[in-house]
């Protein structure tokens, strides 16, 4: 990687004389960009932790260990633990069909997979209320069988799945398209069956893309607010996820506690960014397989 970066930058350096801005233009542009980013990204990030610790470590510790916070944490983890694996299987199935086969309507299917990204989270919650709510299609039937989905955990899980459907599929589809079908064809000619081909050839080849999509999917699953807010019912200790818990504390003016819980989510975001950056490097490596030409 370093050698690649070095060659790139040395190439740039040679061109610097005639095709680059003068130093002062450069530094003004850098300054402007960094000021903008500082105001909009860096200051908020620092502020979360500052506000969280404003009233000291004791308040912080108490806020994140009180029973309601722990319950919210459990629910957030549960929702992610169901939504992420389901979307993982979906992503692999969708990418297998789309990337390895030629069929009609493929582009429409790709657009449909992306659909949840363009739907407002609030609408995403609303549609489940319309289907499963008391007034909804299945409401009377569910009530008769004493099954509660809306204002209960299943609704939260469903809303979480909805908003995270595209994450893994959209990472895998272009990756698997770029890798082509020859390795799989070779495996089949050599006698491998479908599962052997998937396990031994395809999955090892896409493992970094898979991980990348999973990281993003997980971050969104744990952080989703709007969609979950609509279907949750905000019952403390029972149907509150961490982001919803933050909202409740905030609306009760327990600012320090709200920011303490928020800081946990901010840490999750930072871990996500770090993991994402690491995996991006692996992906970049895989995308440009080093061609070592030591032909005699």
């Amino acid at each position: 990687m370093t050698t690649l970066a070095q060659t790139l930058s040395s190439g740039r350096l040679q061109s610097a004389r005639i095709a680059e801005e003068s130093a002062w233009v450069r530094w003004i542009l850098i300054g402007l960009a960094l000021t903008f980013l500082a105001l909009f990204l860096f200051v908020p990030l620092v502020a979360v932790f500052h506000e969280a610790l404003k009233k000291g470590w004791d308040v912080y510790y108490a806020a994140i260990t009180e029973p309601d916070a722990l319950a919210a944490m459990r629910l957030t983890l549960t929702a992610a633990a169901i939504a992420v694996p389901l979307n993982l299987i979906f992503g692999i199935a969708a990418a297998w069909a789309i990337a390895k086969f030629e069929f009609r309507g493929k582009n429409i299917l790709i657009t449909l997979i992306d659909l949840p990204f363009s739907v407002s989270p609030v609408v995403a919650g609303l549609i489940y209320v319309l289907v499963f709510g008391l007034q909804g299609w299945l409401g009377p039937w569910l009530a008769a069988h004493d099954i509660q989905i809306i204002f209960a955990v299943p609704g939260i899980v469903l809303a979480t799945i909805f908003v995270t459907v595209p994450f893994i599929a959209r990472e895998l589809i272009p990756l698997m398209q770029a890798q082509g079908t020859e390795e799989e064809e070779a495996a089949v000619i050599l006698g491998a069956n479908g599962w052997q081909t998937l396990w031994r050839v395809t999955l090892p080849n896409i493992k970094w893309g898979l991980l990348y999509g999973t990281i993003l999917c997980n971050a969104r699953a744990m952080g989703e607010f709007g969609a979950v807010s609509v279907v949750s019912g905000h019952i403390r200790g029972s149907t509150n996820t961490l982001p919803l818990h933050v909202e409740i504390l905030y609306n009760e003016y327990s600012f320090a506690a709200a920011f303490a819980v928020a800081s946990l989510l901010a840490m999750l975001a930072l871990i996500t960014l770090a993991a994402k950056t690491l995996v991006e490097h692996r992906l970049a490596k895989q995308h440009q397989p080093r061609e070592i030409n030591h032909e005699h």
């Binding site: 020859e182 390795e183 050839v201």
Partner: peptide, 18 residues
């Protein structure tokens, strides 16, 4: 294909990279 007992060498080799 599996039962044809053919060996196939692809143009770009299609070696399993992993």
């Amino acid at each position: 294909v599996r039962d044809r007992q053919v060996g196939f060498v692809f143009q770009h080799y299609a070696l399993f990279r992993n």
